[in-house]
Design a protein around this nucleic acid. Structure first.
Lengths: 199, 199
DNA sequence: CTTATCTTGGACCGGTCGTTCCAGGATGGA
DNA sequence: TCCATCCTGGAACGACCGGTCCAAGATAAG
């Protein structure tokens, strides 16, 4: 029958994620995508559509491949507050050191992108927030069941707090914040959620 | 002697702040600045320099006119935790309602801009963070002196926490977060900082 | 009024933007 | 092998980008 694609769309998506994440989607031209993926404009447009669709597809893939696994692990981790502390330690380490230091988080970065008005992209932003908040909520519930949490803490509000904190960490890390500051900021929140006995 | 400027540079700056803030500096072209200010390219370049200089000047003006007064008021407010609570209530209200709803914060938005690498701009980002953190620190000290703060709270870390939280609020508000969620998130942090008696 | 100096409007520059298009190559069933 | 179908490379599109330039206008000291 017809010809078949000469490339793997998922591999191409991974390369686009990397590009949009490091450089910023708004300031990345199609020519750069062509160069990074090795594809031609034709293949790009035939497979994904225009630039907004490209950005949306890359964002979805980031959520599924980078965010979701971490969220799922956090939600499934039964240790309670130590799991949340570990989440932030891993986060700060990934944002401030290694190959992706100072890249921030693609979802966080997209919050300020012009494309945030596109409904396809806004939906991913909202889905990300809901998933992050749900994972935090699950970890807080485990903490409450283990008696680690101070009485009177609203778990829903606490989950929102931790999500907002993660956005703050991602944002500041892209501008070169020091890991120690970010870690101390996260620890102060968790200490405030802890029972006096456990603290 | 020579001719004199036919416009007020500060008024023009205010119009640029508004433009960059609402639309995003990266995706705003010089032509839009020309239209918004009513100036010609010549006057723009003669007065401010190229686009990065424009962006830096607008960012500095935002800090001085929008951020600094609020920070100063917070630092001077002796009420302690209620002052911080009031800060977040005002912040959420300004970000989620009124003329500038969903604009976020120009400084927060600039953290993900391509121009964050420009040293002139990075300096403003860092200055903003230092000022915000110092104001939070001052308010926390007042709270400690009034016995509102739980024993063992590291004020420096707590100030960083509150600053990160503010960035999170600004970021999420630009994507349309609900005011109630943001407020609840802020309140949970402050509750965690409060002594059991005051809570 | 003249003159020196600065500002202003707007044409213009090369380059890049996102997008479209088509000729030619590759594919696999008949 | 032939053919219908799809994919690919690359040229080309108009629009816009940030930046430069200069003639004409405005200004105020002499």
């Amino acid at each position: 029958m017809p010809d078949i694609k000469h490339f793997d769309p998922e591999v191409a998506l991974d390369q686009m994620v990397r590009l949009f994440w490091e450089r910023g989607a708004d300031v990345t031209g199609i020519a750069e995508v062509v160069q990074a993926t090795g594809l031609s404009r034709s293949s790009l447009y035939a497979t994904f559509g225009g630039k907004e669709r490209l950005q949306a597809a890359a964002l979805r893939r980031y959520l599924e491949r980078c965010s979701r696994p971490v969220f799922d692990a956090l939600a499934a981790d039964g240790r309670g507050l130590p799991a949340i502390a570990g989440f932030f330690e891993q986060l700060v380490a990934a944002r401030c050191a290694g190959e992706r230091a100072r890249w921030g988080c693609l979802v966080t970065n997209t919050h300020t992108s012009a494309a945030r008005e596109v409904s396809e992209i806004r939906q991913v932003l909202d889905a990300h927030h809901a998933a992050l908040r749900a994972a935090m909520r699950a970890a807080l519930e485990a903490a409450r069941d283990r008696g680690q949490v101070r009485p009177g803490l609203d778990l829903e509000a606490g989950a929102e707090t931790l999500a907002l904190l993660a956005y703050g960490v991602n944002l500041r890390s892209r501008a070169g914040a020091r890991a120690a500051d970010l870690l101390a900021g996260a620890r102060a929140v968790l200490d405030g959620f802890t029972t006096t006995e456990e603290r």
